[in-house]
Lab assay of single mutants.
Amino acid sequence: EHKIILYENPNFTGKKMEIIDDDVPSFHAHGYQEKVSSVRVQSGTWVGYQYPGYRGLQYLLEKGDYKDSSDFGAPHPQVQSVRR
């Protein structure tokens, strides 16, 4: 199983989107239009992308907690697509 939770604010606060065993080419299409400032990967390895359609900067997200976007190497809290 692959499970990831994306949070609007640092330290796992604010609006969140939970994804289980699915690739998401556009967070906006899924109704999530917030920034991504923290991430909790509960299982599996994911790649987050700066822009929709798996474009832009890529961020490797392995199991663990990323309490701020800088923890996974993002210069800005901008992640708009993700895949396993």
Score class of each variant (00 low, 15 high):
Ile20Gln: 11
Met17Asn: 01
Asp22Gly: 09
Val36Arg: 01
Val39Gly: 02
Asp68Ile: 14
His76Pro: 10
Gln50Ala: 02
Leu57Asp: 12
Tyr32Gln: 13
Gln42Val: 15
Val24Trp: 06
Pro25Thr: 02
Tyr59Gln: 04
Val24Asp: 04
Asp68Lys: 14
His28Val: 13
Arg55Trp: 04
Leu61Ala: 01
Tyr66Met: 03
Ile20Phe: 14
Gly64Ala: 06
Phe12Pro: 00
Tyr66Asn: 15
Ser69Ile: 15
Val41Arg: 00
Gln42Pro: 05
Thr45Gln: 11
Arg40Phe: 03
Tyr32Pro: 11
Tyr32Met: 13
Ser37Lys: 08
Lys3Pro: 02
Lys16Thr: 05
Pro77Val: 12
His76Cys: 14
Glu62Ser: 07
Leu57Phe: 12
Glu62Arg: 11
Ala74Cys: 11
Pro52Gln: 05
Tyr66Ala: 06
Val39Trp: 14
His2Asn: 08
His30Glu: 13
Gln58Pro: 09
Ser26Arg: 06
Ala29Val: 12
Gly53Val: 12
His76Gly: 09
Thr13His: 05
Ser38Tyr: 00
Met17Arg: 11
Ala29His: 13
Asp21Ala: 01
Gly53Glu: 10
Ile5Phe: 00
Lys15Gly: 12
Met17Ala: 01
Pro10Phe: 02
Ser69Tyr: 13
Val24Tyr: 11
Val47Pro: 03
Val36Glu: 00
Gln33Phe: 13
His2Ile: 04
Pro52Asn: 05
Ala29Thr: 10
Pro10Ser: 07
Gln78Pro: 09
Pro10Tyr: 04
Tyr7Gln: 07
Asp23His: 03
His30Ile: 12
Val36Asp: 00
Ile5Thr: 11
Pro77Gln: 06
Ser69Phe: 13
Asp68Thr: 11
Lys63Thr: 10
Pro10Asp: 05
Glu34Ser: 10
Ile5Val: 13
Tyr51Asn: 13
Asn9Ser: 09
Asp23Gly: 01
Val39Lys: 03
Tyr54Trp: 00
Gln33Met: 15
Glu62Gln: 09
His30Met: 12
Tyr59Gly: 03
Asp65Phe: 02
Glu62Trp: 06
His76Ser: 13
Ile4Cys: 05
Pro52Gly: 02
Phe12Thr: 05
Gln50Thr: 06
Asp23Asn: 04
Lys3Cys: 09
Ala74Ser: 15
Asp21Pro: 03
Val41Ala: 01
Ile4Ser: 01
Ile5His: 00
Ser69Val: 13
Asp65Ser: 08
Tyr7Lys: 06
Thr13Arg: 15
Arg84Pro: 01
Val47Ala: 01
Gln58Gly: 07
His30Cys: 10
Gln33Arg: 12
Arg84Asn: 00
Val47Arg: 02
Tyr7Met: 00
Gln58Ala: 11
Ile19Leu: 14
Glu8Val: 03
Pro52Met: 04
His28Ala: 15
Tyr59Pro: 07
Tyr54Met: 09
Leu60Asn: 15
Ala74Thr: 15
Gln58His: 06
Lys35Asn: 03
His76Asn: 14
Glu1Gln: 05
Trp46Ser: 05
Ile5Gln: 03
Lys63Trp: 15
Asp68Cys: 09
Gly53Phe: 04
Pro77Asn: 09
His2Lys: 11
Val41Tyr: 00
Tyr32Asn: 12
Gln33Leu: 14
Val39Phe: 15
Val36Gln: 04
Pro52His: 04
Gln42Ile: 15
Ala74Gln: 12
Glu18Ser: 09
Leu6Tyr: 04
Ser43Ile: 03
Ser26Ile: 01
Gln58Leu: 03
Val79Ser: 01
Arg84Glu: 15
Lys35Glu: 06
Gln78Met: 06
Leu6Ile: 13
Val79Cys: 03
Lys63Gly: 06
Ser37Tyr: 05
Met17Asp: 12
Ser43Asp: 02
Val39Tyr: 05
Pro10Trp: 03
Glu1Val: 02
Leu60His: 15
His2Ser: 13
Lys15Arg: 08
Asn9Met: 07
Ile4Pro: 00
Gln78Asn: 13
Arg84Trp: 05
Ser43Asn: 01
Glu18Leu: 07
Gln42Phe: 06
Thr45Cys: 10
Leu6Val: 11
Leu61Gln: 02
Ser37Ala: 12
Phe12Gln: 07
His2Gln: 08
Ile20Asn: 15
Pro10Glu: 07
Gln78Ile: 08
Gln58Asn: 01
Thr45Ile: 10
Val47Cys: 06
Tyr54Ser: 01
Gln58Met: 09
Arg55Tyr: 05
Lys3Val: 01
Arg55Ala: 06
Val41Asp: 03
Asp23Pro: 00
His28Pro: 14
Gly64Val: 00
Val47Thr: 04
Pro25Arg: 08
Gln58Phe: 15
Leu57Glu: 15
Val24Gln: 04
Lys67Ile: 15
Glu1Thr: 08
Lys15Asp: 03
Thr45Ser: 10
Leu61Tyr: 03
Arg84Ala: 02
Ser38Val: 06
Lys63Pro: 15
Arg40Ser: 11
Tyr54Gln: 06
Val36Met: 04
Asp68Tyr: 09
Tyr66Ile: 01
Arg84Val: 04
Ile5Glu: 08
Leu6Asp: 00
Gly31Trp: 04
Glu18Ile: 15
Ser43Glu: 11
Tyr49Gly: 04
Val39Ile: 11
Tyr59Cys: 11
Pro77Asp: 11
Lys67Phe: 14
Asp22Met: 08
Asp65Gln: 07
Val79Arg: 02
Asp21Gln: 07
Gln78Ser: 12
Asp21Trp: 06
Arg40Val: 07
Val79Phe: 14
Thr45Pro: 02
Leu6His: 00
Lys16Pro: 10
Gly64Thr: 00
Thr45Gly: 06
Asp65Ala: 11
Tyr32Leu: 14
Lys16Phe: 15
Lys67Val: 11
Phe27Leu: 13
Val41Asn: 00
Gln78Arg: 09
Ser43Ala: 14
Arg40Pro: 01
Tyr7Ile: 00
Tyr66Glu: 01
Val24His: 02
Asp21Leu: 00
Tyr59Met: 14
His28Glu: 14
Ser26Phe: 13
His30Val: 12
Gln42His: 06
His28Arg: 14
Leu57Gln: 15
Asp22Tyr: 01
Thr45Tyr: 05
Arg84Gln: 06
Leu6Phe: 04
Gly53Ser: 03
